[in-house]
């Protein structure tokens, strides 16, 4: 645990070195003021981080975090170095320092934050819609006998159409902008939750329902006390799968259909051959996705301890 804390401390120090204006003189404050960080300083910092982490490894062997950070710093180092000596053209693959500078400048101007909020708004809206429709519909279909058996062929067929394939039709129906994006993200999240709800309810042991019956509960008690809780783990699996699909489909939808959001930013920066912004937006999408995903995991652990 000590090694882990030390690694976090080292990473924090490095970040602070970049962000705190007075700490290391003018050169390192570059990316706060919008100027570029010197490649030399960046490479030295990455190298220092790597060495530091490797030094810690001697005490805490086999720490995955230490190794991971080591590779990352070597990777960044090589990347920066390759651009610096001219192995790669900056337009094709801008160096990390340039990407950092873009991230910083776009973030400070509020541009990146606005698009991030736009993406998040779209995602939460479709996610809430999908959970709010898929779960009740799943419970409904599962509790009507033979309903699922009748619907199954149609569902199988519709599910074989990937959500992005609905994009042209939904753009035609709803126009460009938010509605088609929300529609196809909703569709991508809907099916995993819907099908998992049905499966969870079908797989639930009938004993619990019979216990409720024996104790004098009605049909509603049965659904609320036995069916839903026993299906909940499967539902949450569906939510996690749908969450991943939805995030990917949202990126697609924003590339094609919308006029804001991180996907749109990537697309527009690409049309202007502004590859630092493309990479900055990709980085932000990556971080956001990872953060949301770990948040969801935490939520799942709290909600379904059984």
């Amino acid at each position: 645990m000590r090694g882990r804390r030390a690694a976090f401390l080292a990473a924090g120090l490095l970040l602070a070195a970049g962000w705190a204006p007075s700490a290391f003189g003018a050169e390192l404050t570059g990316f706060v003021s919008g100027r570029r960080v010197s490649p030399v300083v960046f490479m030295l910092a990455a190298l220092a981080l790597g060495v530091l982490i490797q030094g810690l490894r001697v005490r805490e062997r086999g720490l995955p975090l230490v190794r991971g950070v080591t590779t990352l710093s070597i990777f960044l180092l090589l990347w920066e170095f390759a651009v610096w000596v001219g192995l790669i053209t900056t337009i094709l693959l801008p160096p990390p320092t340039l990407v950092l500078q873009k991230l910083d400048a776009l973030w400070l101007s509020g541009y990146l934050g606005w698009h991030l909020l736009s993406t998040l708004r779209r995602f939460t809206l479709s996610f809430a819609l999908a959970v709010g429709t898929a779960f009740p519909l799943g419970v409904l279909v599962a509790s009507i006998p033979r309903a699922f058996a009748l619907l199954h062929p149609v569902i199988t067929f519709v599910r074989m159409i990937p959500a992005p394939a609905w994009a042209p039709l939904s753009i035609l129906w709803l126009g460009l902008g938010d509605p088609p994006a929300i529609f196809i993200v909703w569709l991508a999240i809907f099916f995993p939750i819907f099908l998992n709800t049905i499966r969870g309810i079908h797989d639930a042991l009938p004993v619990y329902r019979e216990v409720i019956r024996t104790l004098g509960g009605g049909r509603w008690d049965e659904v609320r006390e036995a069916t839903v809780p026993s299906a909940l783990p499967a539902v949450l699996t569906g939510i996690r799968v749908g969450f991943g699909f939805g995030w990917v489909v949202l990126a697609t939808a924003e590339l094609i259909a919308t006029d804001s959001g991180l996907g749109w930013l990537i697309h527009v920066a690409y049309t202007q051959v502004d590859s630092p912004t493309v990479l900055a937006a990709m980085t932000l999408i990556c971080w956001t996705g990872v953060l949301l995903n770990s948040g969801l995991r935490e939520l799942e652990r709290r909600l379904v301890p059984w």
């Binding site: 949202l250 590339l255 690409y270 493309v278 990709m282």
Partner: peptide, 16 residues
């Protein structure tokens, strides 16, 4: 980190 980026978001840079 590579996995964290949705594959379609790679399209523009890969087209470059």
């Amino acid at each position: 980190f590579i996995r964290g980026i949705p594959p379609p978001a790679w399209l523009p840079i890969f087209i470059l």
